[in-house]
Nucleic acid binder design. Structure first.
Lengths: 196, 196, 196, 196
DNA sequence: CCCTAAGCGAGACGGTACGTCACGTCTTCCT
DNA sequence: AGGAAGACGTGACGTACCGTCTCGCTTAGGG
């Protein structure tokens, strides 16, 4: 089946060590503070070994961060109450996004994506896009359940939700509580509307 | 009155040349592709001359991009109709954000902000924060005019509006028309609410 | 009697392929241009297979070059006429040393020897020293035959002969004819003396 | 006169430090043991500073060694007695060539020359060729003085003299005394001839 | 006829050096 | 003083090579 199984196989331990080292450096020194040399040194690995697996810094960072969060399942909860589920989801994210570590990692993803279009697309495909689809899906279920208006622009609403979270994460440093309140406000505004 | 005006005054032409060179490089090669050496060379200027005016790359890029758009006035139009004004503002942004050049510049700002916390704060202070305030202000005027609900979380709504725009700009490459439609959808959802 | 001859025997074809590849690379790219990886690749062989037979680059190069010339017998001709025999021998060398290929190979040996003392000693033992001994021997036979002065410093004369050839080969690029004439001049000078 | 004297001038101290460091490394570790990184580190200088002045290792080594010896004057002594002068010159070289340091440096030159044709030519032009010319010149003066046969092939004799020295230096490790004796033998053989 | 030792291709791996690029500081001369 | 030019220390980049290693497969001789 596996057509080419020749040569010494790549060490899984090395893979982990590199990703761990990358995350450590990201949290400690930010995206700028990560260099292939430092990653290799911290992982106890030769530089070439890093390059053998990742062509450059950005994809390495993307994979390192993704691995930390991506259980692979971005599905939102579905208790039957769309509003409650959205709130739950956002609160969870607010919690995650309130630790300095997580914020550093997420900002690193943004940095990697902003530098290179290819990396951006990879990231969208593997992370952002999936979250987008998951939120859209939950909203559409809400439409079927009669909780969300059937003439609502679900895609646009999703953009507003994810966008607000992205904007807050990248732009300001806030406490978990502030963040959670703001997210609740976003959900309220979006559900009930702000016009008279 | 000018406290010390001795020696040769700084050349305004040099200032412009540097900012222009920076923008050219940003559009052509992205944030990564800009280096102080290249900027100086393209502007026909010595490296030191660049450093005499900007401490590092990020502030230079920020100023170069800001200068291209910011007339310094981020005030939203006020025709008395808050909804129409928001729509107008977003459509304008959609137009700006649909040219490849502009997208490149905006992504450069995001890159600068994501890489370094100091740069992020500078950027927020000079650009993002002002836009945020302008949108908030227009919404509050709308509240006074009875067009926006007085129990609406204006800050949260602003986050949703700006966030959606940021998210779209950074995540996907879309036509001006698509972008405008999506923005209209965001405004509709936010104004009328999506819950039944 | 072979103490242990178990296991798969080493392939003679592989041996030849490696030496051939080494010579090709030497001629094409010089000593610097030879790398164990390239040799292996060109020979269609695994790197490890090269290292199984030669501990490092220098001995490999030495053997590759030696194999091309050394029939293993460095004996000078002995027709009874020492002077004629020396001339014959030098002319032969001049011919060999006038092809670009051969010069490249000889210069490679010099490079290997000059870089590392161990390699130099190996080389002297296997090649230079043998040639030296062969020339000395022929001269001593000439002494016995009454053609060479019996108070001559045979070792010194040998140094002069071999040295002149080495010096010319390493220092200048010359035609076969020029080289042969010069060598003839060296023999003449050394035999008859240059003092009045 | 000096058409371009702009910019910060290159530091002479840096130049010396680099050449000194190169010589130290050559003596301690041989040509192979010299690397641009080590040279820079030992000289207390940035790697780039070394590359700014020398394109690669070989020319740097050539200049470093040349500087140690080349007073620029390779003229042989001229006391009126050609034979005595040649002997004096060779004895001086034998002394120089008997210290481990000098041998290491000379072997480094050979290594540099053997690796690259361009470097070889540079070296010949600046060092070997000059010595050759000086020896030839002294011999020709000897011809005029009636001490050297006027039908002698002066060029060939020079090749034999220099060649013998080169050969001995590169091939064997010997004491100063041995070396001097051998050189004396070379001169004797060449002057008086070895044929009966 | 299997068993065991070695050869062999393939390629991962830790190191070291390479030569280049970028950053931000500095020194020099010229205006 | 401003400005052009360019040297300089620092450090990251991505590549090449060295010599070792770990795989799976092949090729022999020995039980």
């Amino acid at each position: 089946m596996s057509q080419s199984r020749r040569g010494r196989p790549r060490s899984a331990a090395v893979h982990e060590a590199i990703l761990n080292a990358t995350r450590t450096l990201l949290v400690d020194a930010g995206y700028r503070g990560v260099s292939m040399d430092k990653v290799a040194a911290l992982a106890g690995v030769a530089v070439q070994t890093v390059y053998r697996r990742w062509p450059s810094k950005a994809p390495l960072v993307v994979e390192a961060v993704m691995q930390a969060y991506a259980s692979g399942d971005f599905t939102l909860p579905d208790t039957g109450d769309a509003i409650a589920d959205l709130t739950t989801w956002m609160r969870e994210y607010a919690e995650i996004g309130s630790t300095a570590e997580s914020v550093a990692l997420i900002r690193s993803l943004a940095a990697a994506a902003a530098e290179d279009l290819t990396d951006r697309d990879t990231l969208y495909e593997q992370l952002t896009g999936r979250v987008h689809d998951a939120v859209c899906h939950r909203l559409r279920v809400g439409v079927s359940a009669g909780q969300i208006r059937d003439d609502a622009d679900v895609e646009a609403a999703t953009d507003a939700l994810i966008g607000a979270m992205l904007y807050r994460t990248l732009s300001v440093t806030a406490s978990a509580q502030e963040t959670e309140e703001r997210y609740r406000g976003v959900i309220d505004a979006l559900l009930q509307g702000i016009s008279t």
